[in-house]
């Protein structure tokens, strides 16, 4: 298996907090990697480095063999075409309706007709259970609904790399399963590479080929779900089993 995304020694300080402190991470073509870690540990920051929304203070982000720091804006744009990104809170454009939000990537980057776009939008919205909300403004949606619209928008161009920031957070158990299935389907049907950030351990175990745990600004362990279940490391164990007592203090 070949590496498609590599983070090498990434350091990042935001405000006066050292968020990433030499993070190393490799994602292989076609796998689903789950990143777990506590709230505020830098998971979203890590994802934003991968799509170039943040640049590392030191270290390298290498996508398909190329360092993103060496890319021009146009090249970075081109690269991002192959990505789907689900933001933690959806990041919908509040001035557009739900349907227009989902249609946006198609309108901007394809020559599809309005009818074709309409059909795709309806299909994806139905998929996330929001077919009746197409003409609604995002501001009236609940958090979980926004996230589902964000998901529909992220997958509409059927990207080859998907990054999900807490895809099941704020969803009910049924919708969570639908999303887990979606992630698994994209892998099996379209060979999509996925990175899933989550605290939801059941979801992590349903979708992960490998799990990486972010702690103290570095990845302290990567391994298969099985390896995580059997981990001896007290930090990993405490997180995976959600124990109150342990080396991680609140």
């Amino acid at each position: 298996m070949s590496a498609i995304i590599e983070l090498k020694g990434v350091h990042k300080t935001l405000g006066n907090k050292r968020v990433l402190a030499g993070l190393n991470l490799t994602v292989n073509q076609g796998e689903t990697l789950v990143i777990i870690g506590r709230s505020g540990s830098g998971k979203s920051v890590t994802l934003k480095h991968i799509v170039g929304l943040l640049q590392p203070d030191a270290g390298n982000v290498i996508i398909e063999g190329r360092d993103t720091a060496d890319m021009s804006y146009a090249e970075l744009s081109e690269l991002r075409m192959g990505f789907g990104f689900l933001f933690q809170d959806g990041a919908l454009l509040n001035s557009l309706t739900v349907g227009e939000n989902v249609a946006l990537p198609l309108r901007e980057h394809t020559r599809m007709t309005d009818d074709e776009i309409q059909r795709m939008v309806a299909e994806k919205l139905a998929f996330v259970g929001l077919e009746l909300h197409e003409n609604v403004m995002p501001s009236v949606l609940s958090g979980g609904m926004k996230k589902r619209v964000g998901l529909a928008r992220a997958i509409i161009r059927e990207p080859q790399i998907m990054l999900y920031d807490e895809p099941t957070h704020g969803l009910d158990p049924i919708m969570s399963s639908v999303v887990n299935e979606l992630i698994n389907n994209m892998k099996s049907k379209s060979k999509v590479t996925s990175i899933v950030v989550t605290h939801d351990m059941p979801s992590a175990f349903r979708v992960a080929d490998r799990i990486a745990m972010l702690y103290g600004g570095v990845i302290i362990k990567t391994g298969t779900p099985q390896e995580f279940l059997e981990a001896d490391d007290p930090i990993v164990k405490q997180f995976v089993y959600g124990e109150e007592q342990g080396p991680i203090t609140t």
């Binding site: 934003k48 799509v51 170039g52 929304l53 744009s77 081109e78 991002r80 075409m81 990505f83 990104f85 933001f87 990041a91 919908l92 454009l93 509040n94 946006l104 990537p105 901007e108 980057h109 928008r153």
Partner: peptide, 9 residues
């Protein structure tokens, strides 16, 4: 929202 636009190229 601006970040979202950037990510969508």
């Amino acid at each position: 929202e601006i970040d979202a636009l950037e990510v969508m190229s």
